[in-house]
Write a protein that binds this DNA or RNA. Structure first.
Lengths: 249, 249
DNA sequence: GAAGTGCGCATGTCCGGACAACCTGACCTC
DNA sequence: GAGGTCAGGTTGTCCGGACATGCGCACTTC
């Protein structure tokens, strides 16, 4: 079986980019572009390290990162194998805006509401603040190709960042949060479905009672603080969640 | 700030369980049980290694696995911090059966259909077989507390495993696949919503036109082979997907 | 021919060390 | 007092080596 001894990698030791990262990026590119055939073996780590002038731990670190991404499979006593591809889009914490933009759907936003209000029980619990605390409330309508796609309702702690109407209309909420210097860490989501209310049917252009996809999400930063609680409603006829997940070994 | 120098860990060098894994398990237990307070620093790796009689790489490997799980955050020049908790249930490739069982919902299964049929275009594409190939079809009704929860329709390649009616009724499909020696690796999912058809409303006990939560999933094993394609329909009034996801750094 | 055995080989684990990069807080300077 | 500077501490990266473990194949044996 081929072990791709001919593949070339270029490593720059003077670059600030770590060597293991340079290697993993080039390996990933080779896999995506077919330079490494699915199912084929990668060749053993010792030789690879010697050929590249790297130590085995460094090579292992590069390989491990691709194993974590689901691109490679290691088998003791056998070798490291390129996984047969299929689609590979890992589940990430992405905003609807970015998703639509990446799909070429020309996203747009209409800010319906931008105010503060005292937190109700559910919002307070999600954000980890006392009930009745003033919190920011933003309601938006997300459009794609000019057509309504989703109604987005978000609560945020006050003082976390300065939301201006222009930023909200021009881009996604996550970008604004990140550009305020907040490092997002994780989110808790609940996805369900229900029938459209009269108000929603008007906003979204769906008949009353039409099935809608709902998502509630609480997002946390890397200190564990809740930075956002969202209650979103999507037109099921035009949108669905699409993601890949890995089995943790 | 406390660095928990008093915490005790017991490592068994004669155990076949890797040292880094023993340590990561005990660290995780300490975090869950509050022995390590959220927000507190873990103490530097060098000291920790010396105290435990381990090398720094081993300690780092243990810590890294918890960082990957989202329990810890490392900051260069600062230290390793325990994240404020909230709920922590990572997104895994779990079967509905296991989910319900874990929630104490007394799951049960009624096998509606168990046969083979020629693969249509969509099933053939998902399983990676030529259109018209004979594939196994299983239709099940999943109940919780005796109430219908979901209608499950699964296609599998023939010869992959021996499904018997007893096994299907007694447990989840994933358990049967795993116990056939197949290592699951990843899955691609699409979650949406639509209105219940007349047939579905009868099966699930929902009014016709009621909103249903839908999921399509193709599951792959560690050779990249598709092992299962499922089209599932859940009662939105009784079920929703609930998961946590991490931002990949 | 079928079952069991042994060997080579690849990954898995663990060690000890070295230097770099980065953050924080104290100190100094203006 | 405000700003910049420097030192200490911590994680990040990388190296070289050693032994353990598990898998597959060739060989042997019955």
């Amino acid at each position: 079986m081929s072990t791709h001894r001919s593949l070339q990698f270029s490593l720059d030791r003077s670059s600030p980019v770590p060597l293991y990262y340079q290697l993993s990026q080039q390996l990933e590119a080779a896999i995506e572009q077919g330079g490494l055939a699915p199912g084929s073996l990668l060749g053993n780590e010792i030789d690879l390290a010697a050929r590249l002038g790297l130590s085995r731990p460094t090579v292992r670190q590069a390989i491990q990162s691709l194993v974590d991404k689901g691109l490679l499979v290691r088998r003791r006593g056998v070798g490291t194998q390129v996984l047969h591809s299929q689609v590979r889009r890992p589940l990430e914490l992405s905003s609807l805006y970015d998703d639509l933009e990446a799909a070429g759907q020309q996203p747009a936003t209409r800010v319906l509401l931008h105010t503060t209000e005292p937190a109700g029980a559910r919002v307070a619990a999600a954000l980890g603040v006392p009930e009745g605390t003033e919190v920011v409330l933003v309601e938006r309508l997300r459009l794609a190709h000019g057509e309504p796609m989703a109604h987005l309702r978000n609560h945020l702690p006050v003082g976390l960042l300065d939301l201006d109407g222009g930023g909200l209309a021009a881009t996604g909420l996550y970008r604004l949060i990140r550009s305020a210097g907040i490092t997002l860490h994780s989110a808790r989501q609940t996805v369900g479905a229900r029938a459209a209310t009269a108000a929603e049917s008007g906003l979204l252009g769906e008949p009353e009672g039409a099935p809608l996809l709902t998502m509630e999400r609480t997002t946390y930063d890397d200190t564990g603080r809740a930075v956002e609680f969202g209650s979103h409603v999507y037109r099921a006829s035009r949108y669905s969640f699409d993601f890949q997940l890995l089995v943790r070994p």
